[in-house]
């Protein structure tokens, strides 16, 4: 790691008056899994399209593997693989024929591309399915084959646009494993997602993108460290009322209290918390306490704090679901 392989400088994309991406600058280092995390409509696909040559930036510059990503895009395309947000292979062609065709687009010889197609089908557990036409594949198999097509020419960098969206849980798990394996073999991964847990589990570094702006780019570890400064204690009670929370805030001026659900409240404290006074407090108020849990911060907490957007918005799926 350490070597910059993708550099976006002040990328902008306007569609008429509408700004889809606003002054986006970030770098991706060779060998890492970089995740672009943001809600639907944030500008993730538009950014990938600009980086891969399907869209022209309104302003800004791109450097990929040392090449000008705008002027010499055809040279860049030889070294990158692209997995679009929809599985867009040829419906009537078999899985095998699809892979062989995609290999030929990168100039691979017949024997070489057939061997590579066979190898990838086996590696992705599609050896049998590969003989069927693409339209007969399940969603999860379609996505896997689309990923295989994306790495058919063994690219140095792989772009994946929402690789697990709309896929069953098991296939999604396999796909995350495939992405990690590929990365383990040295492929740099640039992926977008609106699943926080996916970004947290998979990525080394993430960029938060909201309404076209890249708000923060950092390693997962550093993002968490900022958040780790605070201690979270979740209490499960018989019940709670606003008056109780009010009384708590007065009794413990150093902590913040927030409501999680009708039975649970969360205490936020800048320092370590001693439990006895709280238990005493609830006993005095005659409220049974069933559970107390020290909660480690998640990327979700970081995302909400930094972007200020509601978590519900991030989890909202696109309406018209994709194939």
């Amino acid at each position: 790691m350490g070597e910059t392989i993708i550099e976006a400088m002040g990328l902008c994309k306007w569609f008429g008056d509408f700004t889809a991406v606003r002054d986006a600058s970030f770098t991706v280092e060779a060998g890492e899994i970089f995740g672009f995390l943001g809600p639907n409509g944030a500008g993730k696909t538009t950014t990938i399209n600009m980086l891969t040559g399907l869209a022209k930036p309104t302003a800004g510059a791109i450097l990929i593997a040392g090449e000008d990503g705008i002027r010499h895009i055809k040279k860049v395309q030889q070294r990158i693989g692209i997995v679009p947000d929809e599985s867009n292979l040829y419906e009537d062609m078999s899985g095998f024929d699809n892979l062989v065709f995609c290999a030929s687009l990168y100039g691979m010889e017949k024997a070489q591309r057939e061997a590579r197609a066979r190898q990838l089908l086996a590696q992705f557990g599609l050896a049998e399915t590969g003989k069927r036409p693409f339209k007969a594949f399940s969603k999860g198999m379609k996505r896997k084959l689309t990923i295989a097509a994306g790495i058919i020419h063994a690219p140095r960098i792989l772009f994946l646009d929402e690789p697990t969206t709309g896929i069953d849980v098991e296939s999604a798990r396999q796909i995350r494993k495939l992405i990690q394996d590929l990365n383990g073999q040295g492929t740099t991964i640039f992926l977008t997602t609106h699943y926080i847990e996916e970004a947290e589990r998979l990525c080394h570094r993430v960029g938060f993108i909201v309404d076209g702006s890249v708000i923060r780019v950092d390693a997962i570890g550093s993002l968490m460290q900022d958040e780790d400064q605070a201690y979270r204690l979740d209490f499960t009670l018989e019940s709670h009322q606003p008056a109780l929370l009010e009384a708590m805030s007065q009794a413990f001026p150093n902590i913040q209290v927030s409501v999680l659900d009708p039975q649970r409240i969360r205490l936020l404290s800048p320092t370590r918390v001693e439990l006895a006074p709280f238990i005493q407090f609830f006993e005095d108020a005659q409220i049974p306490v069933y559970e107390v849990k020290l909660v480690h911060p998640s990327l979700e907490d970081v995302f909400v704090r930094i972007t200020g957007i509601e978590i519900a918005r991030l989890k909202k799926e696109k309406e018209g679901q994709r194939k």
Partner: peptide
Amino acid sequence: KSRSFERLLLAPIS
């Protein structure tokens, strides 16, 4: 329309 054309546009061919 089926977006498979994007593959061709993204291939390293003029």
